[in-house]
Amino acid sequence: MLNATYTIALLIGSNVFMTLAWYGHLKFGTQNLALFWIIIISWGIAFFEYCLQVPANRIGFSGNGGAFNLWQLKVIQEVISLSVFCVFTLLVFKGETLRLNHIIGFIFLILAVYFIFKK
């Protein structure tokens, strides 16, 4: 159980860095920077994503004594990724709104989690 908790916490942290690396430059005053520098900055941020993502997968993988198989790890990561993205978008990009079709999509993700974890 502790491995599962660590895995999920590390995945949340890694996805915060990932979302910032992939989408932060669209908001945080980098419009005047050349694309090359945006890529370098994003890679620098993504380094920290990898520093959390790789241990999360190693700790969480059932082949290493963790709680999740590969399918489960991937679905958990995707749900966390979209959840972090949703929070980031609503907090940082005030003009974006959460619509019914987004909520329906999240419901399908929850169903995906259910079916992936079903024995």
Rank of each mutant, 00 (worst) to 15 (best):
L2H: 09
A4V: 01
A4I: 02
Y6A: 09
Y6P: 01
T7K: 03
I8T: 01
A9L: 14
A9Y: 04
A9M: 11
I12Y: 06
I12C: 10
I12G: 05
I12H: 13
I12T: 08
S14F: 10
N15M: 03
N15K: 09
V16M: 09
M18S: 11
T19M: 06
G24N: 06
F28E: 03
F28D: 02
G29A: 12
T30H: 05
T30R: 08
N32D: 14
N32V: 00
N32S: 15
L33W: 11
W37P: 00
I38Y: 00
I38L: 04
I39N: 10
I41C: 00
I41F: 03
W43Y: 11
W43S: 09
W43I: 15
I45K: 07
A46C: 00
A46T: 04
F47Q: 10
F48P: 07
E49R: 05
Y50S: 00
Y50P: 00
L52Y: 01
L52E: 02
V54W: 09
V54Q: 05
P55W: 07
A56D: 05
R58Y: 04
I59L: 14
I59V: 15
G60F: 04
G60N: 10
F61I: 02
F61V: 00
N64Y: 15
G65H: 12
G65I: 10
G66N: 07
G66L: 07
F68H: 07
W71L: 13
L73F: 04
V75K: 03
I76P: 02
Q77K: 06
E78K: 03
I80Q: 04
I80T: 01
I80D: 09
S81I: 01
L82E: 04
S83V: 07
S83D: 03
V84D: 05
F85M: 14
C86F: 11
C86N: 05
F88T: 02
T89V: 15
T89P: 01
L90K: 07
V92I: 15
F93E: 15
K94C: 00
K94N: 07
E96I: 09
E96L: 00
T97C: 00
L98S: 09
L100R: 12
L100C: 03
N101A: 13
H102E: 12
I103A: 13
I104Q: 12
F106L: 03
I107F: 14
I107P: 03
I107N: 05
L109H: 07
I110R: 02
I110W: 05
L111E: 01
A112H: 03
A112T: 14
V113Q: 08
V113W: 13
Y114F: 13
Y114S: 06
Y114E: 10
Y114I: 12
Y114T: 08
F115H: 08
F117T: 07
K118S: 09
K119T: 05
